[in-house]
């Protein structure tokens, strides 16, 4: 289930030095912690706190999410294609939430 709950879009092949756009989507309700049930009980916060992308093991982007990020967070960012290898994505959050996804990239 974990691998099916995240989708990343990375160009499979690109030229060295090219700036590539990466899109990453993960399934998560992002419960804000500010809502209440109809009986007035507070619904506890359950959000993704951090999203990290590494390129061949080196961190290239780190995002800290707060309650204001919409459900099923979509995040778009850029990186320079330096070498062939693997882009790894990791989302971590409340209640031990952790999802990883990776994508291979070939740089010519």
């Amino acid at each position: 289930m974990a691998s099916a709950s995240a989708v990343v879009n990375v160009p499979a092949t690109t030229k060295r030095g090219e700036i590539i756009e990466i899109k990453a989507l993960v399934r998560h309700a992002m419960e804000t912690g500010f809502r209440r049930t109809q009986l007035g009980e507070a619904i506890p916060r359950d959000i993704i706190r951090q999203f990290v992308c590494t390129y061949n093991g080196v961190e290239i982007m780190r995002a800290e999410f707060h309650s204001a990020i919409a459900a099923n967070p979509l995040f778009t960012f850029n990186t320079v294609a330096t070498e062939s290898g693997t882009l790894a994505f990791r989302w971590t959050g409340d209640n031990g939430f952790s999802v990883t996804e990776s994508a291979a990239i070939t740089v010519v």
Binding site: I19, T32, Y55, V58, I60, M61, R62, A63, E64, F65, H66, S67, A68, I69, A70, P73, L74, F75, T76, F77, N78, T79, V80, T82
Partner: peptide, 23 residues
């Protein structure tokens, strides 16, 4: 809460541009 998102980048980003969806 006033905070929405904090993104930490570096020269490897190539372009300082991010996008997401918020409440």
């Amino acid at each position: 809460l006033p905070n929405v998102v904090s993104v930490f980048l570096g020269p490897r980003a190539g372009r300082a541009s991010i996008a997401t969806r918020v409440r």
